[in-house]
Nucleic acid binder design. Structure first.
Lengths: 109, 109
DNA sequence: TCTTTGATTCCATAATAGTAGAATCGTAGA
DNA sequence: TCTACGATTCTACTATTATGGAATCAAAGA
C-alpha cells in the first residue's frame, strides 16, 4: 500500500461520524446497510451522511451497490487488512521482537 | 477503547509526515530514535517535527524519554493493538464470518 | 558563566474539512 | 405522467489543522 493511500484511509476514519458509520458497517457484515438506515441509526442528516459516505468510498473503505431505490453500503475488509499490514510493516526492523512475538489477542476483520 | 480515543489516534496517523514518523519508529523498535535523528532522516524542520510528535504523544501512539540532551521517541505498540481491535470489533455481528475466518496473513506490531 | 546545541513554544498565515439548507437526480409505484 | 421518496450535489459558512520563522528553554562542556 502506498503512503498516500494509507493517509486517505486513515483520514477517512479519523472523524467521529465516519468512524461510527464504518464500525456499523463492519458489524453489519457483507450485506451492508442502506444509506437511509445508517442515517436513521446514527441520526445523521442525509446530505451530511452522503458527504461522509463519499469520503469512505473514495478511500475504498466501503463498497456500495444500488438495489432498487436503495443504495447499500458495506465494509471493504480487504482494504482494512491492507491498512493494518501497512501500519505494522517491518516492525522492529524485521527482527523477531516482543511486539510481534506476543501481540494482543484480538478478533480480526 | 473509547470512540474519541480512536479518532484521536487515527487523526494523529492521518497525515503524511506523522505517518512517516510513526512507521519509522515502528521499524526502529523499542529503543526508538532521537528527535534530531527523525528530523534528519525525514527532512522535517525541528519545530514542525515537535508539533507532529506532540500530536502523536497526545494520542499516546508514541512514548518519549529524555536521555541527556536528546529526547528519544518510540512506538507504543499496545496502543496500536488496541486501535486495531477497536476497528475490527464485533466484525459481522460476532457471527463467524469470512473476513474473520480467513484474514490476510500479516506481520503484527 | 558563557557557548553550543537539541528541543520546544509562540505566532501568524494559508489551506483543508465538517456542517446543513436548498435544489436536483433517479427509481418505483399510482 | 405525476408523485413520492431515497440519495446526492451545490453552496456557503465556520472551525480546525499544517507550516515555518523567531524566540525561548534545557542540558552539557569549555
Amino acid at each position: 500500500m502506498e503512503s498516500k493511500t494509507a493517509v486517505d484511509a486513515l483520514s477517512a476514519l479519523a472523524q467521529v461520524s465516519r468512524l461510527q458509520i464504518y464500525r456499523l458497517l463492519v458489524q453489519a457484515g457483507p450485506e451492508g446497510l442502506a444509506a437511509s438506515e445508517i442515517a436513521e441509526r446514527l441520526g445523521i442528516p442525509p446530505n451530511t451522511l452522503s458527504f461522509h459516505l463519499r469520503t469512505l468510498s473514495h478511500a475504498e473503505l466501503v463498497h456500495s451497490r444500488q438495489q432498487s431505490r436503495f443504495v447499500y453500503y458495506s465494509a471493504n475488509y480487504e482494504r482494512m487488512n491492507a491498512l493494518l499490514s501497512f501500519l505494522t510493516d517491518n516492525c522492529c526492523g524485521g527482527r523477531s521482537c516482543a511486539p510481534a512475538a506476543a501481540p494482543a489477542r484480538r478478533r480480526r476483520a
